[in-house]
Amino acid sequence: MYRIRFHGRGGQGTKTASRMLGTAFFLAGYQVQDAPRYGAERRGAPIFAYVRAAKEAIHERGVIREPNLVVVADDSLVPVPAAGVLQGATARSVMLISSSESAATWRDRLNFPGTVLTLPAEASEQAELCFVGAACTGAAARLLGVIPRAILEAAVREELSALGEDIIRRNLEQALAAFDCMEPHAGSVNEGVAFSVADAKAPDWIDLPVDESDAAAAAIHASATSVEVRTGLWRVLRPVIDYDRCNRCWWVCSEFCPDSAIKVDADGRPEIDYDHCKGCMICVAQCPPHAIAAVPEQEFSEKTP
């Protein structure tokens, strides 16, 4: 059985990417299971989706313990623990990262025992956000080595049929280009094995203690703990204040920021809290003297690894 996990952000077409691959397997004669994993996550937040494919019936469900292929549509997710990109990956796993950086760089950075491949810049960089998913699907199809190019094309068409010929065409371009560029690695993903009884370790079952009622209720006896959630990770654009142009107005940026992510000091000087700024760019749009610029987040990750 092939077990594939896609990682992306809400709004990047991760679910669609997983479904295009699922459909491709299906059209290629496989038994298939695909499913997105929903939480409370919103646009920009890390999400993931599974695809399983096998020639025999599939009885597994839910979480993939050991993925044969991990597809990362957005490389800024890799260092995010909550995204769980490395979850369950082993020396037998292949990791495909859509990134302008080299596979070697990622291999060193991750200290990952399996194969690391990147979907290089020329295939993904110009792609608008919503086409990254298609590129990932195309690349994944080639790495699996069991999906012919024509079937990939048919699957992309089927999944996007409601969106019109223009959207289909642009997604196909991305998917097929990525398929072609993965030619040197065709078939590098192997099917996973079943989890044998012999290798199994007994679960560490415990008898749940009877806890005090205030601890055993889903109640929070604390103030503003949400600041521990780093929603700054959702951001793909970063608002940057040019303090020479900032005229210390009535804190328009802070007032309009939905996320309490812009603090203003006693002198009226705003400061953006990048741990929490989700990158909505309302401040950029509303700043009266246009003192805030939207800068792609990538520029910062490259400068400050």
Binding site: R43, V227, E228, T231, D259, S260, G279, I282
Partner: peptide
């Protein structure tokens, strides 16, 4: 209001 809620950006 504390930052870090899961409401959508914007």
């Amino acid at each position: 209001l504390g930052a870090g809620t899961p409401m959508c950006a914007g």
